[in-house]
Nucleic acid binder design. Structure first.
Length: 508
DNA sequence: CGACTTTGACCAGCGC
DNA sequence: GCGCTGGTCAAAGTCG
């Protein structure tokens, strides 16, 4: 790689970042930008120590500059080098040169301070945006709770459902439940509350929480001819059952990426519409995931956290239908529902309907999610994963609000609104904007999105999707040999790089 | 031969 | 207590 023999010393010396190569090349000191210029003039009898002292002084105060503003330094150094050389060759005295250096140092310091202040300002701006976002969410949750509290009287909750949802699924979500959780939601009159609180604080809380977390389920409905949607994970089928009320068998899979991973999923076709594939996830991965698998994993994890963290509008676990849709996707409807009537708390992401999440541009005659990929041949399963990713991030943001919701002082005050949101388009736009903002600013979202796009694009573009997604055109619905899809967690490494050139960012 | 699927058996929870 | 149902296990079969 490096050819120290033939290359001129100055041109081969790069930024310190790249100087960790093996070989004889010396690891350059932090300020080799400046020392370079001396190498050319070394042996001229110049007072290098003075310069070095000056640079050391500068270095001592500006360590952080090395990598952050190296480009600027490089440019200045280049110019400076020329000036220095000319200064020496022109016989210019060394004192003005030092003055120039001092000016440069002062200039760089000023630049650095500017950057720091800019950084602080941006952080404050981000914080402000987040606060506004949280406020809006809190307001929405408050109104939702008021709305729910009215309906609560007519609904019956089984103790198990309440318990499952009452104390969070994991330690994090458990902690997010304030002590007055039950009081806040006005259910203290229920006899089971004390029992639940006792359970929540018992030594076995962690075990039970884990069990509860595992019980929380995320169901994804998507139209697909494939036997299984491609979520990037590796699954192994361990059972199949004919469930009651559905002629299509239900297949049971467990994650095999790591032995002992608790994540399982059930795949079953909808009885009413066999083109709809219902995939139900349960549990959280206990291992690192390939980027291609992060979409669905983040979705299930986020949804489960939201379910179990008590961020639901009512503590009894009954969430109004379409609450999520109205909260996060005000322009959509009925895309996400939570059901507490099932044996386990289940959130259902319905990706079969027409609403267009986040109002991405949607070409006509295409799937509502086809904005994610211009190719109509793209596997519907991958589109589902992408949409699920968006849902997941929204759910995650929702889950982070649980504490806010529970601590909202106005939570129990009388309800003045019958609707969750006033029919204000401005409100909706603000909320949508905040949601999109939160999505875009979350690095996890970016990473996961990159993973999804990489899985969509694949090494050879949309037509060469990775592994299983490309095989999803099989029309053998009842063929249980669905694990041809399982080994699809590859092609993720370079996929991230392809993201930058995919042009997908335009849609964001 | 190892990994995976198939499929009947087994178990636990729940309702009657 | 019994039966139903969902979920899991594990032996046998299949596949590359």
């Amino acid at each position: 790689m490096d050819s120290p023999v033939n290359s001129p010393p100055i041109t081969t010396i790069q930024f310190p970042v790249a100087s960790e190569d093996h070989g004889k090349r010396k690891v350059l000191d932090e300020m080799d930008f400046f020392s370079n210029k001396n190498e050319g003039s070394r042996g001229h009898g110049r007072d290098d120590d003075d310069e070095k002292n000056g640079m050391d002084h500068f270095r001592g105060g500006c360590d952080r500059l090395d990598f952050n503003v190296n480009t600027g330094l490089h440019l200045l150094t280049t110019a400076n080098t020329r000036n220095d050389e000319s200064g020496v060759e022109d016989g210019m005295p060394s004192i003005p040169k030092r003055k120039r250096e001092n000016v440069e140092v002062a200039f760089l310091r000023t630049e650095m301070e500017k950057m720091i202040s800019e950084n602080i300002r941006l952080k404050e701006l981000l914080e402000e945006i987040n606060n506004k976002y949280n406020d809006l969410q809190t307001e929405a949750l408050t109104m939702m709770h008021k709305h729910d509290s009215q309906e609560k009287k007519n609904e019956v909750v089984t103790p198990r459902q309440f318990m499952d949802l009452g104390f969070g699924g994991n330690e994090e979500s458990s902690l997010s439940l304030p002590e007055g959780h039950i009081d806040v939601v006005g259910r203290e009159e229920q006899g089971s509350d004390s029992k639940i609180q006792k359970l929540a604080h018992s030594p076995r809380n962690v075990d039970q929480a884990e069990a509860t977390m595992r019980k929380a389920r995320v169901s994804v409905r998507a139209r697909s001819d494939a036997a299984m949607i491609n979520d990037g994970c590796q699954w192994r089928k361990y059972g199949q059952k004919l469930a009651k009320g559905n002629p299509c068998p239900r297949a049971y899979y467990r994650c095999t990426m790591v032995t002992g991973c608790p994540v399982r999923k059930q795949v079953q076709r909808c009885a009413d519409d066999k083109t709809i594939l219902i995939t139900t996830y349960e549990g959280n991965h206990n291992h690192p995931l390939p980027p291609a698998a992060m979409a669905m994993a983040s979705t299930t994890s986020s949804a489960a956290k939201m379910l179990l963290s008590g961020s639901m509008p009512s503590a009894d676990g009954i969430m109004n239908s379409n609450f999520l849709a109205r909260t996060f996707l005000p322009c959509s409807s009925s895309m996400a529902t939570i059901s507490a009537s099932a044996p386990f708390p289940t959130i259902t992401l319905d990706l079969t309907q027409s609403p267009n999440p986040l109002q991405f541009p949607k070409p006509s005659n295409q799937s509502p999610l086809s904005f994610l990929n211009p190719s109509q041949n793209m596997a519907a399963t991958s589109r589902s994963a992408t949409a699920a990713l968006i849902f997941g991030q929204a759910l995650y943001n929702q889950s982070k609000l649980s504490g806010l919701q529970m601590n909202a002082p106005e939570l129990n005050q009388g309800a003045a609104h019958d609707h969750l949101f006033p029919p204000s388009s401005l409100h909706q736009q603000n909320q949508l904007s905040e949601t999109a903002n939160a999505l875009a600013t979350d690095p996890n979202f970016t990473v996961a999105l990159a993973a999804v796009i990489s899985s969509l694009i694949g090494p050879g573009g949309p037509s060469s999707n990775n592994g299983s997604a490309n095989n999803n055109n099989n029309n053998n619905d009842n063929n249980s040999n669905g694990n041809g899809n399982a080994t699809s967690s590859n092609s993720s490494g370079d996929g991230n790089n392809k993201l930058n050139s995919s042009g997908f960012r335009v849609n964001l």
